[in-house]
Computed example of a mutant assay.
Amino acid sequence: MRVIDREEVARRLTYELCIPIVREAMIAFSTGETRQLLRSIIPLADGRMFGLMPGALGEHAPFGAKVISVFPENFAKGRQSHQGLVVLFEPENGAPVCVVHAGEVTAIRTAAASAVATDALARPDARRLALLGYGEQAATHARAISKVRPLEAITVWGRSAERAQAFAAAMSAELGVPVTAAPDAKAAVAEADIVCTVSAAKEPILYGAWLKPGTHVNVVGSSYAGPVEVDNDLVAGSRFIADSREGVLAQGAEFLAAKAAGLIDDAHVVAEIGQVLAGQVEGRQSAAQITVYKSLGHVVQDLASAWALYKETESR
């Protein structure tokens, strides 16, 4: 049994490797090549969760599951909020062959998926990124988005001005791009071409009225029905793309809130990102259109990323 720990994942699962892997995984997902169930989530005390995500990369392909805990308060203590394992099984004999650090895979592949969506949906001339949130996903999203657009400026907002400023200083030094902490969320997104909501917010922190025409938004922080990061007007007024139609219809909090308000119906999910990537459905239709990518995260992304690390190790 091969074990790939956090340090090895962080070192080897680069964005240059992961972005194309996630891109192909989402095309395979939307064309029906992969197999997976909706995630099972057990709520725990104090907003914590325990989740199980099983899936297969195809009928005669690797399969496995991600078993993960989510403890949102961990970031403030210097730990990952997502902790767990990705367990891989080989397709020939059904044997378990590898265990991979799920927290680090999740951090990287989630941002890689947003980068894939941004590359497909954001305007080609997008240069300014806004991050609502300053945790681990904010950092990984800044790194990943910079791989698909030549960023000229990044703004960040979070509820702690001190932490937002520390994040800005660290990321500016790392990326060589000016990163500034905004006094509020409205100011953070005022000039943004790309916005990523990567928070633990339970109520909207981003409003559609704040965005300039042509903005692309990655809605990432809420991964189950309940907490919402953006308001109903943004959902209803956007071209709304999902990572999984089935997943968003069942667990996409922002979509479900706008639907409950009577503003949209299920047809408002115009496509899965895999359909856009495969050329089956048009993504952005005009320079002024607001596009939204709702990310729930799917185990085929984890399995494909983890399997690539395993196979590279085996081939040495």
Score class of each variant (00 low, 15 high):
263 L>W: 00
243 D>F: 10
280 Q>M: 13
232 N>Y: 04
275 Q>A: 13
220 V>N: 02
238 S>C: 08
188 A>I: 08
284 R>E: 12
197 T>S: 13
298 H>T: 14
211 L>E: 02
287 A>W: 03
196 C>H: 01
177 V>H: 00
211 L>C: 10
207 Y>I: 01
189 V>S: 04
183 P>H: 02
255 F>L: 05
175 L>E: 07
188 A>T: 11
236 A>E: 01
299 V>H: 07
232 N>F: 00
220 V>A: 01
272 E>Y: 08
236 A>Y: 03
254 E>C: 13
210 W>Y: 12
172 S>A: 15
273 I>K: 00
204 P>Y: 05
197 T>L: 04
177 V>G: 07
174 E>Q: 13
252 G>F: 00
209 A>P: 00
242 A>W: 01
290 I>P: 00
196 C>D: 02
194 I>L: 08
237 G>R: 09
262 G>C: 10
266 D>F: 08
224 Y>F: 14
219 V>I: 15
213 P>V: 07
212 K>T: 10
290 I>M: 03
278 A>C: 12
222 S>Q: 08
219 V>S: 11
288 A>S: 15
207 Y>T: 04
285 Q>K: 15
279 G>Q: 10
196 C>K: 01
281 V>M: 09
187 A>K: 09
242 A>M: 11
261 A>M: 08
182 A>H: 03
269 V>E: 04
267 A>W: 06
177 V>Q: 06
186 K>Y: 03
294 K>I: 04
278 A>L: 12
269 V>I: 15
209 A>W: 01
288 A>C: 02
277 L>W: 07
279 G>E: 09
266 D>H: 13
248 V>K: 01
248 V>F: 03
212 K>D: 06
290 I>T: 15
282 E>P: 02
287 A>V: 14
234 L>R: 07
214 G>C: 08
286 S>K: 06
250 A>C: 06
279 G>C: 06
247 G>I: 01
292 V>P: 05
297 G>F: 08
212 K>E: 09
176 G>Y: 12
279 G>W: 04
213 P>F: 10
181 A>E: 06
278 A>T: 12
249 L>I: 09
210 W>V: 06
261 A>V: 01
291 T>V: 12
242 A>Y: 09
193 D>K: 10
214 G>T: 03
264 I>F: 04
211 L>D: 05
241 I>K: 00
183 P>C: 06
180 T>H: 07
199 S>M: 05
